[in-house]
Design a binder for these strands. Structure first.
Lengths: 123, 123
DNA sequence: CTCATATTTCCAGCATATTGGAAATATGGA
DNA sequence: TCCATATTTCCAATATGCTGGAAATATGAG
């Protein structure tokens, strides 16, 4: 991910409502959630929500597909991975020794598939 | 890290100049860089830079200390770790199976201390 | 075709962010 | 004390972002 895209993503997520929307979509998984359902759950006004969904979409963080009258939004995990990778990049490439505090985060992520947890705990 | 702090951090980093400043400081490590030196390297006007350093500082992403006439800024790794952890949180706790694409990121971070790389590659 | 639902687009007012010039503050040296 | 350096604060202009009401578009049902 290049810097411009990272700025767009970070800027999009640097907004209370949009961060809430994105987190909701991440939790929802690939199945996604319809715009109206998002508005209901987060108590947002439809047009404002639409504007915020548009910002997230333009940043590449979410994707949409139509299903009947509804438009289903879902998080783009590749974009999220790219953003996380971008943020970690400098740490590891530029200054390897300062990655130690990230161990618990790595362990938490590694815990997803159960691998790699024990070695990190002992490290 | 709670949501409010995450929004502040993401919003602070969602700005071209500030992201460049932060990445420079992350690369610089704990020794940090003086404000004037940052301005020189990134070709920024001192007062504008100061305003942006203030935003990053208020977001808790960087810290400063005085050294003679200079003020040295350095990245706060705990804050960065907290932010990354916050972003990964939903992924792992809410929807474990979608963490797979994060494997390479985890591997990259794990590569910092050389542990845990081989297992992730085979996973 | 007509209607109800779902969502977006348009628009304008309001709020907030960004910028850089000029002045102020802080430190150290002569 | 006086001066140069380093950085910040003050300030006003400009730009950008956010919001929600109203209207427009799209889809499916009867």
């Amino acid at each position: 991910m290049e810097s411009k895209a990272a700025v767009a993503s970070l800027s999009a997520l640097g907004h209370e409502s949009r961060l809430a929307i994105f987190r909701l979509l991440v939790k929802a998984g690939p199945v996604g959630i319809a715009a109206g359902e998002i508005a209901r759950r987060l108590e947002m006004i439809p047009n404002t929500l639409s504007a915020n969904l548009n910002v997230l979409s333009h940043a590449g963080l979410i994707v949409s597909r139509r299903d009947g009258r509804s438009i289903i939004y879902s998080a783009d995990y590749a974009a999220m991975s790219g953003l996380l990778g971008f943020l970690m990049e400098d740490c590891c490439n530029g200054n390897p020794q300062i990655c130690a505090p990230l161990g618990d985060i790595v362990a938490k992520a590694a815990d997803c598939d159960g691998t790699c947890l024990t070695e990190l705990e002992t490290a």
